[in-house]
Nucleic acid binder design. Sequence first.
DNA 1: CGCGGGTTTGATGATGCTCAAGCCCGGTGG
DNA 2: CCACCGGGCTTGAGCATCATCAAACCCGCG
Lengths: 191, 191
Amino acid sequence: MTIPLYNNLTEKITITDGDYNKFLELTKSISISKNDFFIHEGNVSKYIAFVNSGVLYSYTIDKKGNKHVVQIAPENHWISDLFSFFSYETSAFNIEAIEDCEITILSRENFEKACNTIPAIERFFRLLIQKAYVDSLRRVSRIYSNSAEERYLNLIKSNPKIIQRVPQHYIASYLGIKPQSLSRIRKKLYD
Amino acid sequence: MTIPLYNNLTEKITITDGDYNKFLELTKSISISKNDFFIHEGNVSKYIAFVNSGVLYSYTIDKKGNKHVVQIAPENHWISDLFSFFSYETSAFNIEAIEDCEITILSRENFEKACNTIPAIERFFRLLIQKAYVDSLRRVSRIYSNSAEERYLNLIKSNPKIIQRVPQHYIASYLGIKPQSLSRIRKKLYD
DNA sequence: CGCGGGTTTGATGATGCTCAAGCCCGGTGG
DNA sequence: CCACCGGGCTTGAGCATCATCAAACCCGCG
């Protein structure tokens, strides 16, 4: 159960077994059932989560009542509302399980403790946040420069697993289009 | 010249005069003329910049040759390619002066030094990066949930100065539309 | 079997793009 | 001082993409 986390860390940093175990002790592993919330908008995001199995997704509801999927996190990904997590302000996001999930969570307090006592971990999280930031920048420029069809093709190329496991209307929302439009795009592509 | 920077810091943190002066010694103030580059894509972004006066903007060129404005930074804003700055990888952005600028720059080495020796500064930059990240997330959801006209209205409301000083085609690109479309939107609004 | 969410399909419309031409205005050289 | 040039802004016509409204379909599940 903790092997995926170890592998995830060592994708970005090198860490001794001792440090890894020290880090593990600060985390907690829990289960979330399908459709349960990990974060509910209006609350403060107290934890950051690493997905061992299952899929979570985050979304906002805009003032017109439309849902917008922001992130889809299958196993081996981290998810949280980092802004709320760091600022202690209430979250504007919901994070919900699409499937039953096993996740490893780290509280804000233990996040600080880990960063202060394990330099490799501090480095890891700095890199993680940087990557999240850059991904978000890249997403903006992709929205501007690519059509919905191109964005869809990019997504299946970079994340084929997601397509198979996540209902299509979530994918559509993530791509910024309506389910009907995604359906038409797929029809056009696959015949 | 250094007062704007002090005010900018104290918007987010409290800092002693001693710490502020220590920080100042790690920075350098330089001039950039209109149309000069602060960062050129393909290079590593060695500095992060605080704009004392003037306006800088960052953009990418996509594979179809289209320019996309990512950030517009008038005085009292920070600008850099944070990804390149932190990772030492080459930058995918250009950052260029729209007007003659006075900027205060901080090198990566001195950034580390400042963060290691002045806790208030480390805190400041963590908050700055978080804010940049959240702004970017918010921008994605705005693109999805608002029309170009709504985004334009948002921009004038939140940043009226920019509209007056920055050529319209940069604004259009920032909003993700063509100059012609912005022109039509403005026509529709103002008559 | 029938309900219900998710997906598909059709018809129509809005938004923003493309191509193209004209306009406005500041800067330059004669 | 004027003529001209060029960049940026505007305007027009037609088009592509995606949204909306609505209906039908599919399929797992009680």
